[in-house]
Simulated scan of single mutants.
Amino acid sequence: MNAQTAILEKDITPEGGDYEIVRHAIEKISLDYRDQPSLEVLAEEVGETPTGLQKLFTRWAGLSPKAFLQAVTLDHARKLLDSGMPLLEASFEVGMSGPGRLHDLFVTHEAMSPGDYKTRGAGLTIRYGYHISPFGIALIMVTDRGLAGLAFSDA
């Protein structure tokens, strides 16, 4: 094995340095999402600079550490709301400072409020249409708050 191959394997194999850094960051976010760890805290935890972690995580995971944290938080919030937990309690349980932050998270990612989600969209209007896209025929769904869904309908 030459030096270039050794460097490449270090970075891309499950035993490699980059893999371990990203794995550790994902684990930290997944376990500590209630603390809403900042990029700086995550970087310190894994021994990287904030900029270095941002670039490495995004390259490996396809999204930023903040976007991954939001996805994990949203997933837990959905489960709590599905179990019947009130919005205020669910907000605090997932580490939000209040229901306004949970509202912003839902609207940004779901195009509906947490209340709309909790009531399974009762009274919510979702408009849709089929549109030509570079990837085929797209089914686009929107609410008054934004994009709610995207699917492709070509075979």
Rank of each mutant, 00 (worst) to 15 (best):
G47D: 12
L69P: 04
G52H: 09
E40H: 06
K55L: 10
F68A: 12
T51Y: 13
E44D: 09
K66G: 07
D35E: 15
F57V: 06
P37K: 00
W60R: 11
L42Q: 02
E48L: 01
F68P: 09
A71M: 11
T49E: 05
F68N: 06
Q36V: 03
V46R: 02
Q70H: 12
R34P: 07
L31S: 13
D35C: 08
L42V: 06
L69G: 06
Q54D: 10
P65H: 07
V41W: 13
L74A: 13
D75Q: 08
K55P: 04
T49H: 02
A43S: 00
Q36H: 10
Q70Y: 12
V72D: 12
P65R: 00
G52Q: 05
K66H: 13
T58S: 11
L31C: 11
L53W: 05
E44H: 07
A43N: 00
L42M: 02
Q70P: 06
E44I: 03
V41T: 14
P37F: 00
L39N: 07
A67Q: 12
L69K: 03
V72S: 06
F57D: 07
L74Q: 12
K55W: 11
K66N: 14
F68D: 13
Y33E: 01
T58A: 07
V46E: 02
L63P: 13
L39F: 02
D35A: 09
D35L: 06
F68R: 06
E48V: 00
E40N: 10
S64L: 14
E40V: 08
E48Q: 07
T49P: 02
A61Q: 13
T49K: 03
H76W: 14
L53Q: 01
T51S: 14
R34C: 07
V41Y: 10
W60F: 11
P50V: 01
P37C: 02
L69V: 08
A43M: 02
E45Q: 07
V72E: 12
E45N: 04
P37N: 03
R34K: 11
Q70L: 06
Q36F: 03
H76T: 12
V46F: 05
E48H: 00
V41D: 14
D32R: 09
S64T: 15
D32L: 10
R59G: 13
K66S: 13
